[in-house]
Design a binder for these strands. Structure first.
Lengths: 183, 183
DNA sequence: CTTGCCTATGCAACTCGTTGCATAGCAGGA
DNA sequence: TCCTGCTATGCAACGAGTTGCATAGGCAAG
C-alpha cells in the first residue's frame, strides 16, 4: 500500500502532527489520495516502529499538546525505493458511470431524478475547479525554474485542473444525453 | 457499497455466470468499477439471499456447468432506489501523483527511473485509448436515437475516451516537467 | 502424454479502510 | 451556564477487498 508513502511525501514537504496530516488529506493531498485520521494514526505508529518517522512532543498553550512527526533518513530511503517500483494499475470506482448505465433500467421519474443529481454533482466539480484555479494563482503566480518541489507540485495541480475540466465537459455531454432521452 | 448495483446493471444488460461477470469486470465494466471473481461470487450469494438475483443451472458440453444469474424485479427495484440516492464522493487514489510530488526528494538517478516509468505508464494509457476507440467504432458506428441503452453506454464510453485523452496530455506535461528538472 | 491454459466455482486468511465512540481542554456564542 | 465546535489522540468492531489456494474437466501444443 501507498498510504505510508503519501505520508512520507507530506512529512518531507513539511513535518506535521497526525491531526495536521489528516487535515492535509482532507484538503490538498486528499484530492489524489484520501485517508481518515484513524488510518493516519495507525499507519504512523507502524511507520514509527519501522523507523521511517520520528515524533517530537510539542507543547502548545491554549491547545492540547501534539506530536510532530518527521521522516527519518530510513523513511526517505523507503520512499526512494517505492518511487523506483512500477506504478500499480489504479482501482477505479466510478459510481456515476454505473448509475448512468443503470438509467437504462429506470423509468421517466427515476431518470429525471438522476438528471438533478448529475447537476448537483456538476456544481461540486465546478467548485473544486474554482478552488484549484484559486490555489494555482495563489501558490504559483510566477514559475521559478530553480524550484523543483514547486514545479512538481504545480504539475500535479495542473493534472487536477485538467481532470476537473474534462469531468465538467463530460457531465455536459451526459446531461445532454439524458435530456435527449427525456424528450 | 455499490458492487451489488454494478452487478445488477450488468445482469440487466445481459444475464451471466459469476465467471462471465468477472471477465466483464476485467474488461468493459472494470474500466470504471473493478472487482475480482472472489468478491463477485460472495456478493452474488448475498444478493441471492436478499432476493435480488436468481440462478439457473445451465449444463454445457465440453465445459463445466455454470449458474446463469439474472436480476429479479426486487433487484431492479433496489437498483432504482440506489439511482435516486446521492452520488458518493469518489475515494481517489492516484499513486502517480504521489510519486511525482515524491520526486522532489529523489536524486538524479531516481528521477530518471521515474521518467522511464511514466513513459511505460503512458504507453499503457495509449493502448487503453486505442481499445476504447476501436470499441466505439465497433459498437456505435451510427447513433440510433431510439436506443436508450446504447446511448447511455456510449456516453459512458465517451467519458472513458475523454479521460484517457486528458491523461495522455497531462503525462506529456509531466514528462516535460521532469525532463526540464533533469537538465 | 504431459504440461500448461481455459472454463467454472469456491474456502480461508489476511489486510485495508470505515464507523462509532471516548477523552480532554479551551474558545465563543446563546 | 450550557452547548457547540475545534484541536488532538486513540480504541474497538466491522465490512470491504485481496491473495493464496483447491477442485475439476476439457482442449491444444509440444
Amino acid at each position: 500500500m501507498a498510504l505510508e508513502h503519501a505520508i512520507l511525501v507530506s512529512l518531507l514537504e513539511q513535518p506535521a502532527s497526525g491531526y495536521e496530516l489528516a487535515r492535509r488529506f482532507d484538503r490538498s493531498i486528499g484530492r489524489f489520495w484520501t485517508a481518515t485520521h484513524q488510518q493516519i494514526y495507525r499507519v504512523l505508529k507502524r511507520m514509527e516502529s519501522d523507523g521511517w518517522v520520528t515524533a517530537e512532543e510539542v507543547g502548545q498553550d491554549g491547545r492540547p499538546d501534539k506530536r510532530s512527526w518527521s521522516a527519518t533518513p530510513a523513511g526517505q530511503a523507503a520512499l526512494a525505493d517505492w518511487l523506483r517500483a512500477p506504478v500499480q494499475p489504479e482501482a477505479v470506482r466510478h459510481e456515476l458511470a454505473v448509475k448512468i448505465r443503470g438509467a437504462a433500467f429506470a423509468d421517466r421519474a427515476g431518470r429525471a431524478e438522476l438528471i438533478a443529481e448529475v447537476e448537483r454533482y456538476r456544481a461540486d466539480h465546478e467548485a473544486v475547479l474554482a478552488s484549484y484555479l484559486a490555489g494555482e494563482r495563489r501558490d504559483f503566480p510566477a514559475p521559478d525554474p530553480g524550484d523543483a518541489r514547486a514545479a512538481l507540485q504545480h504539475v500535479v495541480l495542473r493534472g487536477g485542473i485538467a481532470y476537473e475540466r474534462m469531468v465538467l465537459a463530460w457531465l455536459d455531454d451526459v446531461l445532454a444525453t439524458l435530456r435527449d432521452l427525456a424528450r
